[in-house]
Amino acid sequence: MILPQFLILAAALFSLGVYGLLVRRNAVMVLLAVELMLAAVNINLVAFEAALRTSQAVGQVFAIFVITVAAAEVGIGLAIVLMIFRNRQSANVDEFDLMKW
């Protein structure tokens, strides 16, 4: 196995995530797409670890950190979506355009 095969896979998964991030209207779906991107990043971290074989498995440690932070992100993200939904009766991101002139 060689490193680029994992990197290309991760790139493809990340690009899929970006696509979802850009096209999805529903905020929950946007968060799903973000999860895809985070998974792609984790593949990269673990693959680099497997290529470099650091003595303390740094790549895997950081993959674990990413997973943990992602869990926190989902919790907060969904709470925010819930809040917005309650106030606006909609979870469509393209309707939240208050951050403008």
Partner: peptide
């Protein structure tokens, strides 16, 4: 992304 990673790592084994 894939172009840069292929160029950068070539045949690095894992």
């Amino acid at each position: 992304l894939s172009w840069t990673s292929v160029r950068a790592f070539q045949d690095t084994a894992v």
